[in-house]
C-alpha cells in the first residue's frame, strides 16, 4: 500500500499565528492525531523545532559545508509531518484537509513509493 507524507509548510506569519494560541493548537493536533490512530492510518508524526536552531549541510563544493540556521531564502519552512498509510491519494488529501493547520500555512502531499516499486537490480546500492 502506498504511504503518503503530509509535509507541513509554515510561513513566518502562520508560525506566529500558531504560537499566539499554542496551547489550543497542541490540543487540536492531539485530537487530530487520535482521530487518525482510530482510523488506523497514522504511521508517524513529528513537529520540528524553530528552523533557526537547525543547520544546513551544503554539498555544492568538494567537501560538505555546514552553516547554521534555516535553509536559504525559502519563505515556507518545513515544520513537521504526518506519515499516513492510506488507500489512495484522495484519502491522503482528505486527511490533509482536516489538519488543524494555522492560517497561511500549506501542506504538501507526497507519495512514498512501495518497496515493490524500487528497482530490484542487484547493482543498485541499497
Amino acid at each position: 500500500m502506498p504511504k503518503y507524507l503530509l509535509i507541513m509548510r509554515g510561513t513566518d506569519e502562520s508560525n506566529a499565528a500558531m504560537m499566539a494560541s499554542i496551547e489550543e493548537g497542541i490540543a487540536r493536533t492531539r485530537l487530530f492525531i487520535e482521530e487518525m490512530m482510530k482510523a488506523g492510518v497514522l504511521l508517524g508524526a513529528e513537529g520540528l523545532d524553530d528552523p533557526g536552531q537547525g543547520a544546513v549541510v551544503d554539498f555544492s563544493g568538494e567537501a560538505p559545508v555546514v552553516t547554521d540556521g534555516p535553509y536559504g531564502e525559502t519563505k515556507e519552512l518545513f515544520g513537521g509531518f504526518f506519515l499516513l498509510d492510506v488507500a489512495s491519494k484522495q484519502e491522503a488529501v482528505e486527511w490533509a484537509k482536516r489538519v488543524p493547520a494555522a492560517p497561511g500555512s500549506k501542506i504538501e502531499i507526497r507519495r512514498v513509493p512501495g518497496e515493490d516499486e524500487v528497482p530490484q537490480d542487484s547493482t543498485v546500492q541499497r
Binding site: A87, S88, Q90, E91, V93, E94, W95
Partner: peptide, 8 residues
C-alpha cells in the same frame, strides 16, 4: 474523492 471521505 467520495470513496476517500466514505472510507474515513
Amino acid at each position: 474523492d467520495v470513496e476517500a471521505v466514505w472510507r474515513i
